[in-house]
Design a protein around this nucleic acid. Sequence first.
DNA 1: GTGAACGTTAGG
DNA 2: CCTAACGTTCAC
Length: 246
Amino acid sequence: MSTAIDMAGPSSPDQAHSSSTKIPHEPLRPSLRRSSHPYSLPHYMSSPAEVKAQPSDAPQPKAVQPSQKPRRAPVTTAWPDMWESPSGLHLAHAAELLMRAGLLALTGDGSSPEEEEEDSPSCGADYQPYLGAWFPFSPALFPLSGFQVGGGHWRGAALGADTSDGLGVEGYSPSSVGGAGGSRRKRKRCGECVPCRRQTNCEQCSSCRNRKRGHQICKYRKCEELKRKPGGLRVVDVSPFTQFEF
DNA sequence: GTGAACGTTAGG
DNA sequence: CCTAACGTTCAC
């Protein structure tokens, strides 16, 4: 499977710059892959309005303007049939594909953010779109498919593999929970969120400038998962008929 | 609530 | 041992 989601591209000058940049090349989740979805990625990509992740036309994915909150997609429009699946798998599938497509758009065709940041003095501006609106969907959409978006983190619901009985324990990664029986271990970066996928430090944020004393990773590389309080343990029912909290 | 500073942990 | 970076504390 050779998707172009290769943020650790060979052209990245700073690959060795960071020691913790293992990019997971995780295949599409089996549960999603297995399901027989009539839609391919282009189908979702070409859908109107909300989704504008078209790398060819838009060199930069038009991020949602800071002042422009992502709006709830009208359930009755666009892809009505996508909402018909009682399992929500259609949407889950779409979400995952779009997620990846979004990353693809962010990095695609040579103009990777990594390269931009090397040249651009406006550190924050470069990163902002990826943090604020790195996924063009409203979080409100995710619950429908069991996706959970919290602080930018996402988790496939159809997944279910690492959960039990359709319950996903959110807030701790298995590794962070560990077997330490309550001892507070350091959590690890999820490796999946956009900040985690960043390869380079901006060298301009306070964390970068103050690395010696701050002991903090670049603000724009701070894992979305780690930004959340460890105590933010939430049990989310990922069944299609679900209650959610954000 | 946010950011800086420091202790501490974890990996090489 | 060194470096990176998470967790905690504290000042603002």
